[in-house]
Design a protein around this nucleic acid. Structure first.
Length: 347
DNA sequence: AAGTAGGAGGTAT
DNA sequence: ATACCTCCTACTT
C-alpha cells in the first residue's frame, strides 16, 4: 500500500523471470517471430544473485557498457562543465526495458509476467509466495535502478527528468549521452532542431527517418525516460497520499486497491492527470465525459505496462473499449470522431 | 494507413 | 461469469 510502485509493471523487462512453462499460452494462432528479445540470458542466476544480496546483478551486460573512452565527455563538457564520471548501474535493466517498451516491434504473443497486481506482501512462506516476493523485489529494484540512472544522468547533463521540458540543447545532450551509453552511431545532427516536446511527439517511424541506424533504439530509450517520469509522478503522489491522507487521488487511483484495474478506470486515471498524460489523452468535454486519445500508441503502451501485456497495442485496446459499448460504460459520442470516446456516466 | 466495429476463441480470476 | 486479450474480416476516414 505504501509501496508507490505496486501496480507498476516492469515485468516486461524481465520477461523470462518465470518458468518457461509460461512462455506462451497454448493455442495461439500466430507464430512468435522471435522469443529472443524477451529472454534475458542468465536471468535465473541474476535472480538468485538478487536474493543473496545482489552485487553485480547487471554484471553480465554491464562490462559491455563500461568504457574508458571518454571522448564523449569532452563533447558533453562543452555544454556542462565539471562532470563526474557516470556509472550506469542499471544500464542493462534500461536496455531490457527498452526492448519491452518498444511497441509492436515483434509482437510476442505473450511473455511470462511478473504480476504486479498481486499485492503479495504475504509473509515469506514456502515456494510460491517466496518466489512472488522475490519477483516483486526484482521489480522494484529494476524500477529503482532505472530511476536512479536517470537521476544521475539528469545531474550529469543538467537536464530535467521529463523529456517534454527539454530545450534543443537538452535534447542534444541526451542524445549524446544515450549514444555513448549504448554505443550507437552519432545521430545528433539529425535531431538538431528539435525540442523535447517535439521529440516526445515523434513516433518510432519519425525516429527511424532521422536515424535509420539507431532511431528505433533512441525512440525506445526516450520511452524509458517518459515512463520514468510517469513512475516518478506516481511515487510522489503515493508519498503525498500516505502523508496527506485520503483525497481526490485515492478515488481515482486503483493501484492500491488490490483489485485488478479495469481499462475504463485506467483511462480515467490518465485523464485525471493531464499534467502527465495530457500529451496522449485528454478531456474534450469533461462534464460530458468526452475524451480524446491523442497518442494511441502511447496510451496502449501504458496500458500494456500496467497489465503486463507487452504486446498490447491500440488495436487491442480499442477492442476492449468497444466491449464497453454493450456494457454502457463507454460509448462513441453523438458526433463520432476518430479516437474520441465518451464515458456514459461521467463523474 | 490508421481507425472503427464486432465476431470468435482464448486466458485468468 | 467477468474482463479482458488476441486475431480476424469488413468497412470507413
Amino acid at each position: 500500500m505504501s509501496n508507490p510502485l505496486a501496480g507498476l509493471s516492469v515485468g516486461a523487462a524481465y520477461g523470462s523471470a518465470r518458468p518457461s512453462s509460461l512462455e506462451g499460452p497454448p493455442g495461439e494462432r500466430t507464430t512468435r517471430v522471435s522469443g529472443d528479445d524477451w529472454d534475458l540470458e542468465e536471468t535465473k542466476p541474476c535472480v538468485e544473485a538478487l536474493e543473496r544480496g545482489l552485487p553485480g546483478f547487471y554484471l553480465s551486460c554491464f562490462d559491455m557498457l563500461l568504457t574508458d573512452d571518454a571522448t564523449w565527455l569532452l563533447k558533453l563538457s562543452e555544454a556542462s562543465p565539471a562532470i563526474p564520471v557516470p556509472v550506469p548501474t542499471s544500464a542493462a535493466a534500461a536496455a531490457a526495458m527498452a526492448m519491452a517498451t518498444e511497441p509492436d516491434r515483434e509482437e510476442p504473443e505473450q511473455c511470462p509476467v511478473i504480476d504486479s497486481q498481486g499485492q503479495s506482501l504475504s509473509p515469506g512462506g514456502l515456494g510460491g509466495p517466496e518466489e512472488e516476493r522475490s519477483l516483486e523485489q526484482v521489480q522494484s529494484m529494476v524500477v529503482g535502478e532505472v530511476l536512479k540512472d536517470i537521476e544521475t544522468a539528469c545531474k550529469l547533463l543538467n537536464i530535467t527528468p521529463d523529456p517534454i521540458e527539454w530545450n534543443q540543447a537538452n535534447v542534444q545532450k541526451w542524445l549524446l549521452w544515450t549514444e555513448h551509453l549504448y554505443r550507437l552511431p552519432h545521430a545528433g545532427r539529425s535531431f538538431q532542431d528539435l525540442s523535447g516536446r517535439d521529440l516526445c511527439a515523434m513516433s518510432e517511424e519519425d525516429f527511424l527517418q532521422r536515424s535509420p541506424q539507431c532511431g528505433d533504439t533512441l525512440h525506445a530509450h526516450l520511452d524509458i525516460w517518459k515512463s520514468a517520469a510517469w513512475m516518478k509522478e506516481r511515487c510522489s503522489i503515493s508519498d503525498a497520499k500516505t502523508t496527506g491522507g485520503e483525497e481526490l487521488w485515492s478515488e481515482a487511483d486503483s493501484s492500491c486497491s488490490g483489485q485488478p484495474i479495469h481499462l475504463w478506470q485506467f483511462l480515467r486515471e490518465l485523464l485525471l492527470k493531464p499534467h502527465n498524460y495530457g500529451r496522449c489523452i485528454r478531456w474534450m468535454n469533461k462534464e460530458k465525459g468526452i475524451f480524446k486519445i491523442e497518442d494511441s500508441a502511447h496510451v496502449a503502451r501504458l496500458w500494456g505496462l500496467r497489465k503486463n501485456r507487452p504486446a498490447m497495442n491500440y488495436d487491442k485496446l480499442s477492442r476492449s473499449i468497444r466491449q464497453y459499448y454493450k456494457k454502457g460504460i463507454i460509448r462513441k459520442p453523438d458526433v463520432s470522431q476518430r479516437l474520441v470516446y465518451q464515458f456514459v456516466h461521467p463523474v
